[in-house]
Amino acid sequence: MIAYVVRRLLGMVPSLLLASVIVFSFIHMIPGDPAQMMLGDLATPEQVAALRESMGLDRPVYVQYALWLGGVVRGDLGNSIFFHQPVSEVILDRAETSLFLAVMSIVLVIAIGIPVGVISAVRHNSGLDQCVSAASMFFASIPTFWLGLNFMALFSVALGWFPTSGFPSVLKSGDWSNLRYLVLPAVTLAAPNSALIVRLTRAGMLDIANADYVRTARAKGLSDFTVNVRHVFRNSLIAVVSALGFTFVALVAGTVVTETVFSLPGVGRLVVESLLRRDYPTIQGIILVVAFLYMFINLLVDLSFALLDPRIRYS
């Protein structure tokens, strides 16, 4: 098992390098002078020259990449042009909001998506199943930001149940009731992703339901409940877990939109603000972190397969 983990970790290295090359190349895809573009038309030539110097833009590309990658390995993602602060600090400042939001949504996604998908599959073809299918199709077709705006109009403005926007830090104030600021955003973010998990869980269950070993289980005299839980669901978990890993990407993208709608001080909104400010070092840093996170989560998903399926464990 340990050998397997080590092998997988080593296998990730080329992917990480490739991802870093792609992220690094963003700045160099900017037409014209990146320094000029980042500082805007109002900047003096001296300022532009200074930035070019500090970012090493006057050196050969491969030297720039080597220097940048060397920094990344040491945890130095460069400096934000807007904040005049290391990018890693800027990201950490905003991480709290995004992490709380992500955790709350993923909890909702799991708590809603899996049980509903399972029930829908067990009651396959019933009226309930059809309603669930229709609802999950509907929620997968709604733009996240529009759903968020509607929730805001209804639950914050009209009913006054939740605050409309912002998020005062929980960690700094120690006030956990601040999490109420994140309820609507989390529900908004969870809705389309739950719909996806419902669909994939249901499909996974139905795939397994026709397996020969499920018939064997019934022939043994096991009750429907035992068959569905111990045999059908247990075997469809692999599909469900890989779907959850997949949701990560959708969740990150959804965070960008949701944080903007609800004006939350998170990393997602930082992305949009930095793009509008042309603060590319910050963008590079965030995207690199997201890509690495994705690969790491994928690794965890793969490793969990080994736990879920003895055929993988023993090969």
Binding site: I22, A253, I287, V290, M295
Partner: peptide, 17 residues
């Protein structure tokens, strides 16, 4: 590796560039 970048994020960066 391309799949490691959330589509919306990648699209945002590309449009900005």
């Amino acid at each position: 590796v391309m799949m490691a970048f959330p589509p919306l994020l990648l699209a945002l960066v590309l449009v900005s560039i």
